[in-house]
């Protein structure tokens, strides 16, 4: 059964690594629903957050393939329930519509959205939330004609105490020191 999974990977910030990771999905004909890459809490280490709808066993396999990449430190996967996640959406509506009734303002309040910029031609509204929530607001606003709409990839954080990335690096050092490699 296909389910939605959130894959997280920590990696060195190297050119081309994004490509190395995405081809793992392409090769297996797995669609990436959303993808976010940015610097993690530690400088020089990037964090990938990738959302897919797939069977668990396939995701397990993909995550191992990601972790196998030389420049990837660690990769995990989680179900949606196991993580707290958000997406951000921006909506551009005609300012005219905002002036003509208070419906847009009410919608903004009800959805906990906020207004970022108002010009005489357009108004930009921002909302963070799950996809259903940003979508619902889109449908509401679109009654007044949304001029532009953009939704970000997902960012997600686990429910466990903290990221422990620095501890992870210390553990990794110990692990690497513990393996006596065959002499070449």
């Amino acid at each position: 059964m296909k389910e939605e999974f959130i894959i997280s990977a920590y990696s060195e910030n190297h050119i081309g690594l994004l490509n190395r990771i995405t081809i793992i999905f392409t090769r297996r004909k797995v669609n990436i629903e959303s993808l976010t890459v940015s610097e993690s809490a530690l400088s020089g280490i990037s964090k990938f957050t990738i959302v897919v709808r797939e069977e668990r066993s396939r995701v397990e396999n993909i995550v191992k393939q990601i972790e196998k990449q030389v420049d990837v430190l660690k990769a995990y996967f989680h179900t949606n329930e196991e993580m707290i996640f958000q997406e951000i959406a921006l909506y551009k509506v005609p300012t005219q519509a905002l002036m003509e009734s208070d419906q847009i303002e009410r919608m903004v309040r009800k959805h906990n959205a906020r207004i970022l910029e108002i010009t005489k031609d357009y108004t930009v509204i921002e909302k963070t939330g799950h996809k259903e929530e940003t979508q619902e607001l889109f449908e509401g606003l679109n009654k007044f004609g949304v001029l532009q709409f953009i939704r970000s990839g997902r960012v997600a954080i686990t429910r466990s105490a903290n990221e422990r990335l620095s501890e992870f690096l210390a553990e990794r050092d110990a692990l690497l020191a513990s393996i006596e490699m065959k002499s070449n």
Binding site: S11, V70, L73, R172, D173, L175, L176, S178, M181
Partner: peptide
Amino acid sequence: EKIRSYVPEYP
């Protein structure tokens, strides 16, 4: 001798 993001083999 080592690359921190790469674990060639596990103990």
